[in-house]
C-alpha cells in the first residue's frame, strides 16, 4: 500500500495524456486517497529518462518497439499492446488552403509558398520518426522521386516540437497551418484532418512488409551513435517498471486501461483499443 506523500508515478507518451488522465481519475475513485503523478513526454525521451535512473511505476509509450529496444529485460519485464492509431495531417479551418487540400493533393498544398507545416522531433518522439516514414512511403506510393527530401526541407524545424502534443498544441493555437499527428490527437482537439492512404499511414498490419522499407536514423543512448528504426504499424504499449514498490497497484491500473472501461476511454479519445 501507498503511504501518505507517496504516489503512483506514471510516465507516458504525450499523445496519451487524455487517456492517462481519464484512467487516473477513474482509478482514483476506486482507490480513495491515492495520489497519481503523471509525466507526459516524447516516448523515446521517456524511455531514456528511465535509463538515466528516473523512477516511475508505469510506462506507457507510443511505440511498442521501444520496450524491446531500450527497456526489456533490465527495467521492464512484460509489456502489452493496448491501442493502435494512424498518422494524419491535421489542420484548422483558417489554415491556408484548407478548403482545397485532399488526400490526393496534400503534398502540393503543403509545399506551396507561405504554407507552414510541422512535425515533432524524431529523436525524442515516435510521431516524429513516423512522419518521416510516411514521407518516405509517400515517395514510393505516389511515384514522386525526391518528395521525402523536399518535404523534410520545407517542414518547420523539428526541434521546435519535442513531442506530438506540442505540434498539436501549435496547430490548435494557429501557429502552423498543418501538422502531422496521430488521428486520435486531431479528434481530441476537434480539428479536421486529411486521412492518408493506409499503405502509407502506418495503420494496417497487412502492409507491415511495405512499411518496413521506410527507415529513419535516430540518436541512440550512446552519444554519437545513431540507431535505424524501420516502419511498423502504429501500436501503443504499457508496462510496469521492475523497480516499482507497488506492483499490485500498477497491475490494477493496467487492468483498468486494458479492460472494458479503458477501452471506452480509448475510443472516446480517438484510439483503436487492441
Amino acid at each position: 500500500m501507498l503511504r501518505s506523500k507517496q504516489a503512483l508515478r506514471i510516465i507516458h507518451a504525450g499523445a496519451l495524456e487524455q487517456v492517462v488522465e481519464k484512467c487516473a481519475e477513474h482509478f482514483s475513485k476506486q482507490n480513495s486517497g491515492l495520489k497519481i503523478e503523471m509525466k507526459a513526454v516524447g516516448s523515446r525521451e521517456g524511455a531514456q529518462r528511465l535509463l538515466s535512473g528516473e523512477k516511475y511505476d508505469i510506462i506507457a509509450l507510443a511505440d511498442q518497439a521501444l520496450f524491446a529496444e531500450l527497456l526489456v529485460p533490465e527495467l521492464v519485464e512484460n509489456y502489452f499492446v493496448f491501442a493502435a492509431d494512424q498518422i494524419v495531417i491535421g489542420y484548422d479551418r483558417s489554415s491556408k488552403g484548407s478548403k482545397e487540400i485532399t488526400q490526393r493533393n496534400w503534398m502540393d498544398m503543403l509545399l506551396q509558398p507561405h504554407v507552414s507545416f510541422a512535425r515533432s522531433d524524431h529523436h525524442l518522439d515516435p510521431c516524429g520518426y513516423r512522419t518521416l516514414m510516411v514521407w518516405q512511403l509517400a515517395e514510393v506510393f505516389y511515384h514522386k522521386s525526391g518528395l521525402y527530401s523536399t518535404l523534410a526541407t520545407a517542414c518547420l524545424p523539428y526541434s521546435t516540437y519535442p513531442k506530438s502534443l506540442d505540434v498539436a498544441s501549435a496547430l490548435f493555437k494557429g501557429n502552423v497551418d498543418y501538422a502531422f499527428l496521430y488521428s486520435s490527437q486531431a479528434k481530441q482537439l476537434g480539428l479536421p484532418y486529411i486521412t492518408l492512404p493506409s499503405k502509407i499511414n502506418l495503420s494496417n498490419p497487412a502492409y507491415a512488409d511495405f512499411y518496413d522499407q521506410a527507415a529513419v536514423s535516430v540518436e541512440s543512448t550512446i552519444p554519437g551513435k545513431d540507431v535505424i528504426i524501420h516502419g511498423k504499424p502504429i501500436e501503443f504499449a504499457i508496462g510496469i517498471a521492475k523497480s516499482t514498490n507497488y506492483p499490485e497497484l500498477a497491475k490494477s491500473f493496467i487492468d483498468l486501461l486494458t479492460g472494458v472501461d479503458g477501452n471506452l476511454i480509448l475510443e472516446e479519445c480517438g484510439f483503436i483499443p487492441c
Partner: peptide
C-alpha cells in the same frame, strides 16, 4: 491476436477489399 488476424484476413482469397484495423478490432470487441 488482432494484429495477426488483420494480416490473415487481408491474405484470404475470400476477402473483398481492405480490412482495416479499426473495423477488425471493433468487430472483435
Amino acid at each position: 491476436h488482432g494484429y495477426e488476424l488483420i494480416q490473415r484476413l487481408n491474405e484470404a482469397d475470400y476477402q473483398s477489399g481492405e480490412a482495416d484495423a479499426a473495423t477488425v478490432y471493433r468487430n472483435l470487441r
